[in-house]
């Protein structure tokens, strides 16, 4: 049963003010980390589409910051567990924050891979197929933004919709891989560029998977339902 949207916002303040502060801090760390991750994705795709080495370098460099934030979130989470032994919604939010941080780190890694491949692509002559990555990127980043909204706002319904959208992303990914493979056969001279594009598409597809994971963690934090592998059925069962 889903009791309410955004448990954190509706909860009464804890008796211990230090606990309230610690919970706010870990939440802010996750949201800051999410913001940097999104920025890295945007830098990476700009580097590819605008053939900007500078943007690629930004995405690669900023991945370190995301890695550092993952450690910060883990440390904050462990400290809350040790110092306050949280239970119920508090415990779920701490666990979700730590798991979401792990997914954000992986998404940022994917953004970094996109940027590294983009940096190699722009050393070769431009191919028109590069533009075809953009729609897939839009699907992936929108999925990502909504997964973060699920966490920030406790939106369970939105989280449940991410599955279908990820499947659409997967289909679009498969379709583009097929098209690019055919193009490679026709134009073997640009083989390296096309291979890099295929790997970039793969990174975007993986970002969709991580976004779904974030949505699942947000649902767990809000409603205690574990929707992994079973979807919305877990909400009616719980």
């Amino acid at each position: 049963m889903v009791r309410s949207n955004n448990i954190v916002a509706t909860q009464t303040a804890h008796t211990l003010s230090t606990f309230n502060v610690a919970m706010k801090e870990i939440r802010n760390s996750v949201l800051t980390m999410a913001s940097i991750t999104q920025q890295n994705m945007e830098f990476a795709i700009r580097g590819l589409l605008e053939r900007s080495q500078e943007a690629c370098n930004e995405a690669i460099a900023d991945d370190d910051e995301v890695n550092s934030f993952e450690k910060v979130v883990d440390t904050e989470g462990m400290q809350i567990l040790i110092r306050f032994s949280p239970v119920a919604a508090d415990l779920r939010h701490v666990l979700a924050a730590m798991k979401i941080a792990g997914n954000l780190e992986r998404i940022s890694d994917q953004a970094q891979s996109v940027a590294r491949r983009a940096r190699k692509i722009i050393k070769h002559p431009e191919v028109s197929e590069t533009r075809s990555v953009e729609p897939l990127f839009e699907m992936a980043i929108n999925l990502y933004k909504d997964s973060i909204r699920c966490y920030a706002e406790g939106d369970v319904e939105l989280a449940l919709s991410l599955y279908e959208r990820d499947q659409e992303l997967d289909k679009a990914h498969s379709k583009m891989i097929k098209e690019l493979t055919k193009t490679m056969e026709r134009q073997p001279s640009n083989l390296k560029t096309y291979l890099h594009l295929i790997f970039i598409l793969r990174c975007l597809e993986r970002i969709g998977d991580h976004a779904v994971n974030i949505g699942e963690d947000a649902v767990f934090a809000e409603s205690a339902a574990d929707i992994r592998h079973v979807g919305a059925r877990a909400l009616t069962d719980s």
């Binding site: 009464t12 008796t15 606990f19 949280p86 119920a88």
Partner: peptide
């Protein structure tokens, strides 16, 4: 929830 999580 409020009691076990230390809210009252």
């Amino acid at each position: 929830e409020d009691y076990i999580s230390g809210r009252f």
